[in-house]
Write a protein that binds this DNA or RNA. Structure first.
Lengths: 195, 195
DNA sequence: TCCGATCCGTAACAAGCGTTCCGGTAACGG
DNA sequence: CCGTTACCGGAACGCTTGTTACGGATCGGA
């Protein structure tokens, strides 16, 4: 026997480095060497931790979703009233702060990578549909009088609004500032309440 | 003197090939060789038509915007009532048909490329802000009683909704079908009318 | 203490990239 | 009809990429 490595720790550290590089240098700059340098290790460690580059991307994408899902869980639990819970979930999903905007850039990068990689596309679909279901359930609690169709339509619109805000803020943070995003979400919530 | 080349024709053909490759193989598959093969020419012609790869991307991005702007102009002119004009513009911007969905994939690709390329980011901002202003003006015609702030907020929400629908439909066309997109846009328009 | 198994950094590999350059070729003017 | 000139294809270059293989470093157990 000999020294035991911290596999899970390496995976998480390399995934974090992947996010960082992806946010800063985009998809084209996301090389194994750049990830290794950002993580402070060699490219050898990267491919001892993951079988290949795609596996690294898949792990980073999955971990990103788990983080956001946990954050959404916390936001959802914080709100007592159904509408407050819905607001909290939508607001934390939007890219208000700087680190959230970095996360939005990473999200756009993974989205573009999913255009060519079927596995990443599968992951994106699964995660986005889970988010859609979450909003749908919150919406049903807010408006139990709505039909399932109407609830579904409204959930689709809310999710599209939030992800559209994120995507646009990733490249144009001035126009889509935190205040502009909050105002847009608040207006959409107002519609939910009033209609 | 000798034979004269069709510079503009080559530029347009290569830009179209760029869109096609970008939609099918993503950012990573967007190589000069792939573009040349799709256009049915050699890589030499590509770099005789454009100084380098970035210039090709910039031209393709600009041409894409001009096409969509022309289509938006046509949609805007077709509607007699202000609300109908707004509806027509939003609907043509959404990715209902198959070729529109391909366009949405291209848009996502350029968006991700803009994360690392400042020039592409500049173009994206300019084009998106122009679209935002267009919606803002249409909205002002629909609701002259609204304040400028309220008009601006609503325009931001509408643009984010449409671009979010496009981005999500690019990777998950089943969930974000043409019908789902139209329903989401129609619901947003209903809010404009009712509020 | 020393052995041996385990882990990781280094260096090399082939493949593919953007880009350059030159030779053949096609078209126009005389 | 022919010579000149502009144009384009294709091969080559240097570089970077993902991936692999090897050797040294490092720790646990006897």
């Amino acid at each position: 026997m000999a020294r035991r490595r911290d596999l899970q720790g390496h995976q998480e550290r390399l995934s974090a480095a992947t996010w960082s590089v992806l946010a800063e240098h985009g998809l084209a700059g996301l090389t194994l060497r750049a990830v290794a340098e950002r993580a402070g290790c060699s490219t050898g460690l990267v491919l001892h931790t993951f079988p290949d580059k795609q596996a690294l991307l898949v792990h980073a994408r999955t971990l990103l979703h788990e983080r956001t899902a946990a954050r959404a869980d916390a936001a959802q639990a914080s709100g007592l009233e159904p509408l407050d819970a819905l607001r909290a979930v939508l607001m934390q999903a939007a890219s208000g702060s700087d680190d959230k905007r970095e996360e939005a850039r990473v999200w756009v990068g993974f989205l573009a990578a999913a255009l060519a990689d079927p596995e990443l596309a599968r992951l994106h679909q699964a995660h986005n549909r889970a988010f859609l279901r979450r909003i749908q359930h919150l919406l049903a609690a807010c408006r139990p009088d709505w039909s399932q169709d109407q609830t579904m339509r409204s959930a689709t619109a809310l999710v599209s609004l939030v992800e559209g805000l994120n995507a646009l803020a990733a490249v144009d943070p001035e126009t889509y500032s935190a205040a502009a995003q909050q105002a847009a979400i608040e207006a959409a919530l107002h519609q939910i309440r009033a209609e």
